[in-house]
Design a protein around this nucleic acid. Structure first.
Lengths: 112, 112
DNA sequence: CGATATACCTCACCTGTCAAGGTATATTTT
DNA sequence: AAAATATACCTTGACAGGTGAGGTATATCG
């Protein structure tokens, strides 16, 4: 992964919630989707991923259940809750604000 | 400050380097500039700011010297080094990549 | 049967943020 | 002149998120 995760820190939860907005899914598959979306440029470390699931569930933003086995081991599926959807929307809004701020702060243009 | 610093974490150094690209400056003034640029929406906590200066200096990206006193206490001025300029440019490039990645990851559009 | 892919989980460590506290000087107000 | 305020810098301890390293278990493929 060429992108330093430090800069994506703080967006982990939003990225996972985004995946779950589409449909319930399990960790391994979610991470593969992310890798596909970024053409292999980014993916979560396993520890990061499962830590995030735990945090999100404790905060009531997702729920989990054991799903049907696939070709590998058992899968724990995650579903986004209403609170999760609300949090996602707020995170997106905050990201837009933050992005504008950041671009103002790392631009070398003169302020008027 | 309405913006959570967690989301800007990892950009602190770049923000400071950006300020020093214009001219040498000291901590208190740098932070005031940042607050002005963001219309009071963002500013570093002092501990964060001085921790960052220390880190940047240890990494050879800035140097420091005691400057002429102003209306208040003594001021420690910081100057960006060549290595700092190079790092700044790389951080900007990385930010552009990261931003594109992030927007792909928090968008609910279908991937093609 | 061994290798590989799938799938989940935990712990210890590191780094960056920040509340809280401290020091010192210059100006303004009372 | 004393008190309050603004300027200016610094450190420490606690906390949160990311991650390397390690572990467990199942199914498939050669």
């Amino acid at each position: 992964m060429s992108i330093s995760a430090d800069v994506l820190r703080g967006h982990t939860d939003t990225i996972i919630l985004t995946q779950l907005m589409r449909a319930d899914n399990y960790g391994y598959e979610i991470n593969k989707n992310i890798q596909q979306r970024t053409h292999g440029q980014y993916g979560f470390k396993e520890a990061t991923l499962y830590t995030a699931f735990k945090r999100l569930e404790q905060n009531g933003l997702i729920t989990s259940y054991w799903g049907a086995d696939g070709p590998g081991a058992r899968r724990r599926y995650y579903a986004i809750t209403d609170a999760g959807r609300r949090q996602w929307a707020e995170n997106i809004r905050e990201w837009e604000d933050t992005r504008a701020l950041l671009e103002a702060l790392i631009s070398i243009e003169e302020e008027t």
